[in-house]
Computed example of a mutant assay.
Amino acid sequence: FMILLPQLPECWAYRYVPPWPVAKYPEIKTLMKPDRRLVWIVIMMLLSQLAALYLVKDLHWKWVIFWAYVFGSCLNHSMTLAIHEVSHNFAFGHNKSLWNRWFGMLANLPIGVPYSVSFKRYHMDHHRYLGADGIDVDIPTDFEGWFFCTTFRKFMWVVLQPLFYAFRPLFINPKPITSLEIINTSVQIIFNIIIYYVFGVKSLVYMLAASLLGLGLHPISGHFIAEHYMFLKGHETYSYYGPLNYLTFNVGYHNEHHDFPNIPGKNLPLVRKIAAEYYDTLPCYNSWVKVLYDFVMDDTISPYSRIKRPPKGQEVLE
């Protein structure tokens, strides 16, 4: 089912939350500041992946794939969520937006596929127009909802999630290519060529496989489905409060994130603590693995289990 709702105000696009939390707890405003640790964490993650690229260059192929899934996938998926933080300008602040874009390209390097600049453009649409048909590319296409409807097909959809996220924007909401995207792509291609010539083909395959596996059938990938797939009717966005938040910059605090997109992930637990009365009563998850299992096995859930709204200015479809 794809439920169609009217367009809500931009500032509270996914569920109407009055500004009471800030009015009642003004200290929340003090949390709206850059996360200065983010730069050093990303650099350490990048160096760790470079060390891994060196260590796997002479391994047997089976061990290359094994370590790509066991270690590289966790690191690369975590790096994509660091890029999510950078897309909100949490690395250097809003007054240094371009610095954040350059830093996003640096964080993009171990992922192997250029996407940090494009992600920023589409992710802001996701926040402003959550669920808007033809705008929010997080919404699956009609083909995905129609075809991936059986247990096995949904399993394959989970495995292939990174490909759908990569190509879906081209079909739903294509945008003109910008100069920063060209630079992002050029820098990434040069980096990949350097990895190939310095470490060899196994290291390059390890890097790309880590991204494909880490964003597909992987425990951390449960957040893709947990965030906005409607397991309970009437609840569009869900938070996750399990231990994997430590690896994902607290992306699990998703109600809190959409309520306060100017607060970095490290401060989102404080938002929940300060305004507990607004969040403790909402349905939430404690296991992303269970989310993946339930999504695949539950016949009532599919890629169509999302809230969809008409683009702003259009009437609601019956």
Rank of each mutant, 00 (worst) to 15 (best):
T248F: 14
P34I: 13
H60E: 15
Y238V: 02
P283K: 02
A51N: 01
D294H: 14
V289A: 01
V56M: 13
E318L: 15
F231N: 01
R101A: 05
N262Q: 00
K273D: 04
F167M: 04
G216Y: 04
I274D: 00
V86T: 13
L47T: 11
L268Q: 15
K96M: 09
L247H: 09
D58I: 07
H218W: 01
G93A: 09
N245D: 12
I301P: 00
F199E: 05
T237P: 00
A132P: 06
D133L: 10
T185M: 10
E181V: 00
R306D: 06
V291I: 11
I28Y: 06
L47W: 12
S221A: 15
K62T: 14
I189W: 14
P310D: 03
Y253V: 01
F152S: 05
L106Y: 07
Y16W: 13
F103W: 07
R121E: 08
I190H: 05
N245P: 13
L232Q: 08
S305R: 14
R15Y: 13
L180Q: 07
E10F: 03
N286C: 05
D298H: 09
I28E: 01
P311D: 08
V137T: 15
E181Q: 07
G214V: 01
G214D: 01
G72K: 02
Y196Q: 09
P310M: 08
I194Y: 15
S97F: 03
T185E: 11
R121H: 06
I307C: 05
V56S: 08
W20E: 03
Y238P: 00
I177N: 13
L81Q: 03
N245K: 08
L53W: 11
K57W: 10
Y241M: 01
A209L: 08
I139S: 02
P176H: 15
I274W: 10
T30P: 00
N255M: 12
S211K: 04
L217K: 03
I182W: 13
K154R: 15
L282M: 09
H88D: 07
A276C: 02
V198K: 09
S305A: 12
M156Y: 09
D142F: 13
N95M: 14
A52S: 02
S211Y: 12
S203W: 11
I274C: 10
I139N: 06
E227T: 06
F260N: 04
V86N: 07
Y129P: 03
M156K: 01
R36V: 01
N89Y: 07
H94W: 11
N286D: 10
I83C: 03
N100D: 11
W102V: 04
V22S: 03
F231Y: 15
I193D: 05
E85C: 02
W63N: 12
D142G: 11
F71V: 15
S287R: 04
A52M: 10
P310K: 04
M45P: 00
S302G: 13
D138Y: 12
V198Y: 14
R15G: 06
N262S: 02
Y129S: 07
L160G: 02
V86E: 09
G234F: 09
R306Y: 14
N76M: 09
L180K: 07
S73F: 05
I111V: 11
M207C: 09
L75I: 15
E27T: 11
G222D: 10
I41V: 09
N245T: 11
M230F: 11
V187G: 14
L208W: 00
K57A: 06
G242I: 06
I182V: 13
N184E: 15
H257E: 04
L213I: 08
K273M: 03
